[in-house]
Amino acid sequence: MMKYVVLSLMVIFSASCGGNKNPNFLELEEEDIAAKELLQGIWLDDETESPLMRVEGDTIYYADSQSAPITFKVMRDTLYTYGNDTAYYKIDKQAEHIFWFHSITDNIIKLHKSEDPNDSLSFVRREVVIPTYTEVTKRDSVVTYNGTRYRAYVYINPTKIRVVKTTYSEDGISMDNVYYDNVMHICVYEGKKSLFASDVTKQMFAQVIPADFLSQAILSDTKFVKVDRNGFHYQAVLAIPESSVYSIAEIEVGFDGKLTITSTK
């Protein structure tokens, strides 16, 4: 059984504002095209005068440069956003220059439309992604078993593989933040003879890590643990970015070169 350290599962995995409505039910709803047209443009927070979101077509761009754009619809008096999760927000007031809605935390978000072209600068898309590692990291473990000397390597390789994690702003707005995953390269040598060499990716843990967790996690670390009669043992850490939530899985490389992944006991 996997060991989890969980401090904020409610934030990460909870459904938005009362749960998601039945997708089949939503498909039967007629989209309010007039309300969508009213939303086009840049919207500022009434209290701070700071840009919050830019609406273009059927897409919302948030001023937080780490957040991915999300699609939306307006049906009846509700704004629906479609990212990792489907979130919905009750609309309180909407006009050409006014947009008020209830957030997930039941705060009333009051916005007004920008008339300053310079506010568009808040939505210049930048690749702001927080990686666990910024360069290849090498770990070399020298071990002896039954009188034979081995070298067990781990290379942690940063990638451009995007992982999207649902987060919530202080005001209770659902956003999708983007992070980069890692690929681990494990190799074992007996002298100059290679016993094993292979990349290890997050997808290889699908049989031992729940899918909902895995989709928002990154393969953050892998460490050599020991060698015994069964082979070479490693621990892989799969973590939800910027949280204290993680899962540990075991990797075993046999002397026959076979790799096995199991959950921790």
Results as ranks from 00 to 15, higher is better:
N182Q: 05
S220A: 11
T105S: 14
Y82F: 15
D256A: 04
D46W: 10
R162C: 05
K160Y: 11
G57F: 08
V136K: 15
I42W: 04
I91P: 07
K138P: 00
V129N: 09
T132V: 11
K202E: 01
S174T: 15
D256M: 01
D228T: 01
G41H: 01
F72P: 05
S120K: 12
L121P: 01
L26F: 04
K265H: 08
S114F: 02
Y88M: 14
I186A: 01
D77G: 06
F123V: 06
S65F: 10
K258D: 06
D85Y: 14
L7I: 09
D212T: 10
K202L: 13
K193D: 07
Q235A: 06
V6R: 10
N107A: 08
G83Q: 13
K193E: 12
G83L: 13
A95G: 15
S194A: 12
T134K: 14
D85P: 02
V5Y: 11
L121N: 11
Y246T: 01
N84I: 15
V253S: 03
Y168I: 15
D85G: 07
R151N: 10
R125V: 15
R162P: 01
Y234R: 05
K113G: 02
I130R: 13
S198H: 10
K165N: 08
I173K: 05
P117H: 06
G57L: 08
Y80T: 06
V124M: 13
E127P: 02
E30D: 06
V124Q: 14
D221R: 04
D171Y: 10
S67V: 14
K110I: 07
Y62S: 09
F123N: 04
M10F: 11
Y80G: 10
V142Q: 00
